[in-house]
Amino acid sequence: MALQTSGVAFRRILSHFPEELSLAFAYGSGVYRQAGPNSDQKNAMLDFVFTVDDPIGWHSKNLKKNWSHYSFLKFLGPKMITSVQNNYGAGVYYNTLILCDGRLIKYGVISTRALMEDLLGWNNLYIAGRLQKPVKIVAMNEDVTLRSALDKNLKSAVTAAFLMLPESFSEEELFVKIAGLSYAGDFRMVIGEEKAKVLNIVKPNVAHFRELYGSILQEDPQVVYKIQQGHLEIDKSPEGQFTQLMTLPKTLQQQINRIMDPPGKNRDVEETLLQVAHDPDCGDVVRLGLSAIVRPSCIRQSAKGIFTAGLKKSMIYSSLKLRKMWKGWLRKT
């Protein structure tokens, strides 16, 4: 269910920032209702991502408008901020715990180029992972290439989820699997995040997931999608799985190849994927490949947050995350 926060409120917040955005979206518990300890929408922090063609130019303008948003890195100028953004972590620069238009917000800035690479190749599966779950698009230009990449990311998410599911499953099981892709290997799922986070995201928002993925599922020739029953059946033959593996994003294919290729063999990716397609543990191999992408990018991005947010804000933000996890534990006891 969408929040009380209206599209007008989102656009009002956006008006506080430089206009040159190829894409802006809001996400998380402040936008879509979640079950569990994150269910208090009214006081939840609003999370945004701003995609920009020219990060140096955008940060330069934003420093003039919103100097106080930045940590000590603002004294090093927009070029250094952009260098930190592009070269460390997952290619995104976050300013957090910002009071804007009466709401506490966090916003990440990523270059259009870096976003496109993540959407198509899953080199970090960080912002691409955010966009595999329902988000509120606040602004978007008419770039056909970007729209196509956003759609490809969703199709890739469905394919990866299929490979980790049995022959027959429910819509909710599919959406839980999709929502969990970008959490595979995420250390925050053990420390700092509520354990049932993925289920809490999906359960109140099945209709939003259906809206996001419905047409993709209906058009996929490998799927029997019984919409009325909310049930799906897929082709789990080695041939069917090989077809799916061959359409996975490049980085995931490479990680699977690295995991499965014995030392000294140096097999090409296609040969490895053919072997995996016949393996009863195919889904586990895909899961390991996802973890190999997510874990390092998540650790690097979290470490970068100490510099981009500043030590004080980082400690406050971390304590808020730990509090959510603690609430989750208390609910279970």
Rank of each mutant, 00 (worst) to 15 (best):
L46A: 08
R287G: 00
Y317A: 13
L311M: 13
T5D: 04
K64V: 07
K152L: 06
D40Q: 03
K324Y: 12
S170I: 03
A114E: 09
L104G: 03
V190P: 13
K226P: 08
E20Y: 05
R12E: 14
P296G: 04
A161D: 03
D235L: 14
G214F: 09
V49C: 12
A149G: 12
E142Y: 12
V223F: 04
R295H: 09
A114Y: 11
L248P: 00
S22Y: 04
D40M: 05
E20V: 04
A139V: 12
P296S: 13
N141V: 08
Q301I: 12
I201S: 10
C298W: 06
P263G: 11
H231P: 07
Q132P: 01
L232T: 01
P249N: 00
Y27K: 03
V52R: 14
K312A: 14
R130K: 10
I256G: 00
G121I: 03
S156D: 12
M260N: 02
V276A: 04
L146G: 10
Q275F: 02
K304M: 06
N153V: 05
P221I: 10
K74T: 06
P296I: 08
L63V: 03
H231I: 11
L150Q: 00
A114L: 08
A157Q: 04
M140V: 15
G283I: 00
K65Q: 11
G91A: 01
M189S: 13
R258Q: 00
A161N: 02
Y126Q: 04
L290Y: 01
G91T: 02
M116L: 09
N38A: 15
L288P: 00
E173I: 06
W58N: 05
L212S: 11
R295D: 06
L181F: 09
M116W: 05
H208M: 10
L63G: 04
